[in-house]
Amino acid sequence: MSEETFNLLILIIVAGGLATYVWRALGVYAAQKLNPNGELFHWLGCVATAIVAALCVKLALAPPDILKETLLVTRLGAYAAGIAVYYTLSNAPAGVAAAFATMIAVEEVVRPIF
C-alpha cells in the first residue's frame, strides 16, 4: 500500500467515520437524556447549515476536474434554476432535475452561440 493510499484510508476512517459516528452515538444517548430541541442544538444546526452552504459555493468557485470545462456562470445558473423550480413546484427532486437539465442546456445550446 502506498503512503498516499494509507493516509487517505486513515483520513476516511478517523476524520470521516469516527467524526460522523460520534453524533449518531450521541443521538442514541440523547434518545434517553438530552433535549434535541434545545438552544445548543439550534446553534449546532446553524453551523452545519452554513458549512453545507459554503461547500456548495466552494464546489462552484473551485470545482473538481470533471467540472473545470463548464463555465462558472453555468454552475451558478444550475443552482439558480434548481432553487427556482423547487420554489415554483414545491418539489425538491424536480429542482435537482432542473439543475441537471440547465447545466447541459447552457453548455450545449447557449454557450456555442457566444
Binding site: 483520513l11 478517523v14 460522523t20 449518531r24 443521538g27 438530552l34 434535541p36
Partner: peptide
Amino acid sequence: GLLATALAVSFTAIRLLPMVTL
C-alpha cells in the same frame, strides 16, 4: 490536515443526532 477535515465533516454530521433520536 486531519484536524481541519475532521472538524468540517463532524459539523455537518451534527444534524444526524436529532434524526437518530427521533
